[in-house]
Design a protein around this nucleic acid. Structure first.
Lengths: 226, 226
DNA sequence: TTTTAAATGATAGCATTACTATCATAAATA
DNA sequence: TATTTATGATAGTAATGCTATCATTTAAAA
């Protein structure tokens, strides 16, 4: 039995804690698989219920609707990524090396994390790339924000922003640069695969190019305002 | 009667050309208004039909489904923006000034364009900011791309990429930087309004800050690799 | 160990969504 | 004037997005 890490989740995101029961974990796992496979628009509670061998009503007991489930998954992902970043940059003092590591963690293909049994991070990463923005690109963004549903995302952004600030306290846009890094780590990945002419990496399709691009972008900007 | 500009549209996007009839124009106009107001997820053909005073079937004669309509609106927007950029940078020879103008055009609040009677660009701009990415963040992205539905977006990106290339032919990521500018012009705007802690402009909420940020980002990167 | 509570399964139902089809009529075109 | 073509009116159907009820199984408290 390996040590397990759990991400603390906002209780407003679920009706019943999915990680406290087998059925709940099944819902999470199969939802990730299914959304990844057929896309969020085509995903329904009925379909995932059938896949699991429970009923639609069974899924509704855990999540109010599929939007909440998506927000849950994104929140979990950002929380997990924050943990990954803190874990992997813990011993690094130089903020520049730290920021480079963060960029690598953001843009690298994710390996399944042994510390969390219940979630396939690799699949989840793919899901967040193509569906993640839909969590906040809704009319409910204000309400959801009030309920702190996006706190993990904002926390992550704040952490990255503070590392940028450490690199160069005079740089004027640490938070916007941080959100740019996060979004572009994902969007460039998506573009590279599905709309390659929007990137310079269409042929190789390798994440290392995105990391190089982001490093170039970020450190040129930070240095520039010294 | 002022001269009118029309954006050439991919015929695969509609069943019947909406700009060739009053009903069609009504569908476009009221769809923009309604999606802007209630969000794409809550928008239905039935609702917009009732608003216009036609029937659901009437709207379906113009567009296959609401996804196609969204792709149509985004394609129109990018086509229109390309025209704006070509129009407003026509006489500029210095690529640096040109690129600055492009960034300003991308990130500024849009004024309603007198050259197009039939579409409210200001509303459409707001719609594209919050719903635009949903046009390509779907499982159909590959099919839609094959049908050239995203050509206007890609063309715009190519134009900006070539201006970046003119500024510094040695810069390695002109296309990725171009798509970054385009996406961030919109995302930073969205964040500034709805998730302000993801930006450095939460208090003022002024687009000029986004323009300054993007200029800083872009020209630092371009200069850096000279 | 009993008793009680909590979670699940099974089934039903209902309003809305996302369409497709048909037929009559009005408007535009040949 | 004949004939396409576009619109209006109405119906219908499968899927979606839920809510509700009741029996049963499982787990926790007494």
């Amino acid at each position: 039995m390996k040590p397990q890490v759990q991400i603390r989740m906002n209780e407003g995101l679920f009706l019943r804690d999915p990680l406290h029961s087998e059925l709940g974990k099944n819902i999470i796992n199969h939802s990730i698989k299914m959304i990844h496979k057929i896309g969020f628009e085509n995903f329904t509670f009925k379909k995932v219920a059938e896949e699991i061998g429970t009923t639609e009503a069974g899924v509704y007991r855990y999540f109010e609707n599929k939007h909440k489930l998506l927000v849950y998954l994104t929140a979990w992902y950002w929380g997990w990524l924050e943990f990954q970043i803190i874990f992997h940059t813990n011993n690094i003092t130089d903020p520049i090396i730290k920021l480079k590591k963060i960029i690598t963690l953001l843009a690298s293909p994710v390996e399944d994390d042994e510390l969390t049994d219940h979630i396939d991070e690799k699949l989840l990463h793919g899901l967040i790339i193509s569906e993640g923005s839909k969590a906040y690109l809704t009319k409910e963004v204000g309400d959801d924000n009030k309920k702190k549903f996006f706190k993990p995302y904002k926390d992550l952004c704040a952490i990255i922003g503070s590392v940028i600030n450490e690199c160069n306290p005079k740089y004027k846009y640490p938070k916007s640069l941080a959100s740019t890094i996060i979004e572009m780590a994902h969007f460039q990945h998506y573009f590279m695969h599905y709309l390659p002419s929007l990137t310079d990496f269409g042929k190789s399709k390798e994440e290392s190019n995105i990391i190089a691009f982001l490093n170039d972008l970020v450190f040129a900007s930070i240095k520039n305002n010294k």
